[in-house]
């Protein structure tokens, strides 16, 4: 399963399509249902779009999580963009400083089991998300 782990550069909308399709394949290998695969791919799509929108470029890492006989997917998004000056605001539904609708981060947090965000203004943003397979 570790062979599934991959790091992608995110720069254009074509990367968004490629990465979300890859996340769907990995989610299927892990055993997620069709519904869950679509949820995961939508989260990956939004997180990639955030990178392009705010940081222009960054990386998204898709990994399989194995922990105490649990299995899940780990999605990490890293950029060296301007960072988020007010994370609390960014996590509110409908808040956006870009062209988007401000739904990416709060929506992703609702869908994923774990959601961590770390951002330093002028240094960039890291988002770590996990979703576990319910067996």
């Amino acid at each position: 399963m570790a062979a599934c782990d991959r790091t992608f550069n995110v720069t254009t909308d074509k990367d968004v399509v490629r990465i979300r399709e890859y996340s769907r394949i990995v989610a299927e290998k892990i055993g997620f249902s069709a519904n869950e695969r679509t949820l995961i791919a939508t989260v990956v799509s939004e997180i990639c779009r955030n990178i392009i929108e705010y940081a222009k470029t960054g990386q998204v890492i898709i990994q399989v999580l194995l922990q105490n006989s649990r299995i899940g997917i780990l999605i990490t998004a890293v950029d060296n963009g301007p960072g988020i000056s007010n994370i609390d605001m960014a996590m509110k539904d409908g808040f956006s400083t870009g062209r988007g609708m401000g739904i990416g981060l709060p929506g992703s947090r609702r869908i994923m089991d774990d959601f961590e965000i770390e951002s330093t203004p002028e240094y960039g943003t890291t988002v770590i998300m996990r979703k576990w397979l319910v067996q």
């Binding site: 519904n35 679509t38 949820l39 939508t42 929506g107 992703s108 609702r110 869908i111």
Partner: peptide, 13 residues
């Protein structure tokens, strides 16, 4: 599609 509709609602789209 039903799973697309589900994801849109969860995402707030």
């Amino acid at each position: 599609q039903p799973d697309v509709a589900l994801a849109m609602v969860q995402m707030g789209l």
